[in-house]
Amino acid sequence: MTDAATARARFRRMAAMRAFDEACLEALRRKAIHGELHVGLGQEAIGAGMAESLRPEDAVVSTHRNHFHGLAKGVDRRALLAEICEREAGLCRGRGGHMHPFDPATNFSATGIVGASIPVALGYAHAFRLRGEAAVAVGVTGDGGSHTGGFHEALVMAGAANLPMVVLVENNALAISVQFDDVSPTETVSERAAAYSALGLHVDGTDVDAVAETFARAMDHARSGGGPVIVEATCHRFRGHFEGDPEGYRSKEERQRVRDNFDPLRLYRHRLAAAGVGEAEADAILAEEKSAMKALLAEVLEMPLPDPAGAMLYRFVEEARA
């Protein structure tokens, strides 16, 4: 059974992640984000579960739905939110935006191109091996990304070289409108691990305790020389693929059913209770995280946008130095 301190910490992490993406939604409503926005609401247990076993020297390469992975890796949330809100003080000076956060300080990066994350993780894994470091490279993808050539090629290479790479598949069973069952040749993604001499693990991605345990096992396996691991975490996307998605492919009732039955924060309440953390304390944690993000968003919205005069900067090192 999970002890009170651990349960509390896990719940707080999930609450912080939810509050972060809710702040992003608010920023969008206030027109501080003018491009596409993909939030991870409903998938908090995965980000929160992975956070515990990520070390500073590990790397995470994420996707278009990357906020929780960045927070899990320890990216500064003020800088991340400022980047999402296109500010000069953002993580990437407002150049990258929400799909393209890069933080060399924490070894965190992402891509808006589906499947393109895993080959980059492979590169980190090779570097770690080459330098004799005990670090692990985590490549994140959705179920949709698991069908790409990049996913396959990177796992072929990682498997052949027994590299310290963990591929985390957030399987929310949807790639925009396309249902996993309609296009996958296998029932799960994790069972494909055998083809790459990798370890395949499957976990309920709405259960933060299960994710934390499974992800820790995967990281230990890769860190101790066991080779690559595929961790498939099943989950549900609470909102449209992007904000503004008309969601013609699923009914309002279906979406509501998912929200009612698979909310990882609500599902965790009984574990909190079993660990001796009461409803009032849980509510207080939610409220604290919410108000912290509210304050942070207010601060970020005061920050200036990048000066148009600098639009051409940062392509080449000379420009970055100037």
Partner: peptide
């Protein structure tokens, strides 16, 4: 489009 990747920030996008 000057030879630059398209920036995220609206202020920069409008400039290029």
């Amino acid at each position: 489009l000057p030879d630059v990747p398209i920036p995220a920030a609206l202020s920069l996008e409008k400039a290029v």
